[in-house]
């Protein structure tokens, strides 16, 4: 019979064998591995199903994806002090500027990438490389309202009473409010005119929403117009929602999502292999299809089902300097809360 008692020796034995099991390295199944931080949700799903198999096939490298929001990536890399828990970052321009400020990236050498030459100018630098383009403009329901022409249209009838406002929490919200401010005489660092318009519009707007609620509210007809990125428009359209994307005449907004190698990364070479794979035309063409609907950065990809015909159009769009925006953003978020709060 087994003894009912679990004595100290048994426990120690069990604990030791567990520790031993952890210490024994798992047999190398591939040439190596790379751990990459990735945004939870769409990005995670798309990279898991498209990039990981492609990397395994092309370079025999196993891709481990760690779903983390931008703030978590920065916090973890900073807390690890030189021994980051992942090899590669994925970041929007705001957090990217913050990470550069805090010295969290390994110096990036784009010449190690076979796909570097296929990117538009300025898409690769000493910090990292652009893997995805986002375009921000106006989303509207073509069955309910006519096509809007400018940012100013949002604040007049028939649009304002169907408008869904979001604040500065998201990249697209921040940039749209900056462009709205500019349309009313403000600038990248002066969003006061946007606050004035938002405050005037408040009694009329259909919703002031959490960004996460945007798809649901649009689908249910609570709102018929809002500022957002093309990804949101594409994913709603794929679900049969009446939604179209309009370019404001002042110029739509574009920004890039970039990949970076973490300072002190364990698998630098494999990280380059991962980034090169994510940039390859074949992979980006797959990522371009719904539901991920990512706008590629590789010029070899033939654009389809996207609101732009060629990547050259991006050069005419508005871009922003996040090293100026970041220091002001916390104040804007607080101000927005206070202005819209009932």
């Amino acid at each position: 019979m087994f003894s009912r008692h679990v004595d100290r020796r048994t426990v120690l034995l069990g604990a030791t064998s567990l520790a031993a099991a952890a210490a024994v390295p798992t047999p190398a199944l591939a040439k190596g591995s790379v751990t990459a931080a990735i945004y939870p949700g769409t990005w995670d799903e798309a990279y898991r199903s498209i990039v990981a198999p492609a990397l395994k096939k092309a370079k025999d490298v196993d891709l481990a994806l760690e779903p983390l929001f931008a703030v978590d990536q920065i916090a973890k890399a900073q807390a690890a002090r030189g021994a980051p828990p992942f090899d590669a970052f994925v970041l929007d321009p705001g957090p990217r500027a913050l990470a550069i400020e805090r010295g969290l990236f390994e110096k990036f050498d784009a010449s190690k990438l076979s796909n570097a030459a296929k990117l538009p100018a300025g898409f690769a630098d000493a910090h990292g490389v652009a893997v995805n383009t986002q375009i921000v403009g106006i989303a509207y329901n073509p069955k309910k309202v006519p096509t809007p022409k400018s940012w100013k249209d949002l604040f007049g009838e028939p649009y304002v009473s169907r408008l869904g406002l979001t604040g500065f929490q998201t990249t697209f919200g921040t940039l749209s409010l900056i462009e709205i401010a500019k349309a009313y005489g403000g600038s990248e660092t002066n969003v006061e005119p946007a606050f004035v318009e938002v405050k005037k519009a408040l009694p009329k707007v259909a919703a002031v929403m959490a960004p996460a609620a945007l798809p649901g509210l649009f689908q249910q007809g609570q709102i018929d117009i809002c500022y957002t990125n093309t990804n949101n428009v594409a994913s709603l359209k794929a679900r049969g929602v009446d939604i179209d994307f309009a370019f404001p005449e002042e110029g739509a907004i574009t920004f890039i999502t970039t990949l970076h190698i973490a300072k002190g990364a364990e698998n630098v070479e494999n990280a380059y292999a991962y980034i090169d794979t994510a940039l390859s035309a074949d992979v980006q063409a797959q990522l371009m299809k719904p539901p991920s609907s990512m706008i590629p950065t590789n010029k070899d990809v033939v654009l389809a089902e996207l609101p732009i015909k060629s990547l050259d159009e991006l050069s005419k769009m508005r871009t922003h300097d996040w090293s100026k925006i970041n220091p002001l953003r916390a104040g804007w978020i607080e101000r927005f809360n206070k202005e819209v709060s009932k």
Binding site: A207, A213, V340
Partner: peptide
């Protein structure tokens, strides 16, 4: 946040904004 929306600010959304967006 989803049903109440942006005009009704409660403590949990302040925590989320300050930790996840504003750092």
């Amino acid at each position: 946040s989803v049903i109440g929306g942006g005009r009704l600010v409660f403590l949990p959304s302040v925590i989320w904004q300050q930790s996840m967006v504003v750092y």
